[in-house]
C-alpha cells in the first residue's frame, strides 16, 4: 500500500510538470486514443470473458444481472 501511495504522489507531482497545450491535443482526441472506445461492444466482450474467469471487477462500477451461465 505504501508503494502504491508513493507511486501516486510521485506520479501526480510529475503530472504537474507536464503541459500538453490545447493546440497539441488533436491526436489525443482521436478515436484510437480514447480508453472507453466503443463502450457497448467492449462491454459485451468483457461480459463474455468475465463469465469464464474467476477474477472479475475493477473495470467499472455499473452492474446488473448475473449472466453467469
Amino acid at each position: 500500500m505504501f508503494k502504491l501511495l508513493a507511486f501516486l504522489v510521485l506520479g501526480t507531482v510529475m503530472a504537474g510538470c507536464v503541459t500538453v497545450r490545447p493546440e497539441q491535443r488533436s491526436v489525443l482526441a482521436d478515436p484510437t486514443m480514447r480508453f472507453e472506445g466503443d463502450e457497448l461492444a467492449q462491454g459485451q466482450k468483457k461480459h463474455a470473458l468475465d463469465n469464464r474467469e474467476g477474477s472479475t471487477g475493477g473495470g467499472g462500477v455499473s452492474g446488473g444481472g448475473c449472466g453467469c451461465n
Partner: peptide
Amino acid sequence: AFQGSWTQAWTPVLVTQLIYGV
C-alpha cells in the same frame, strides 16, 4: 464496488490510465 481512476496525458501522443477497484 468502489473504483478510482487517474488518466494522464503525458505528451501529445501518449496517454495513460491507472485504475484501482475493490
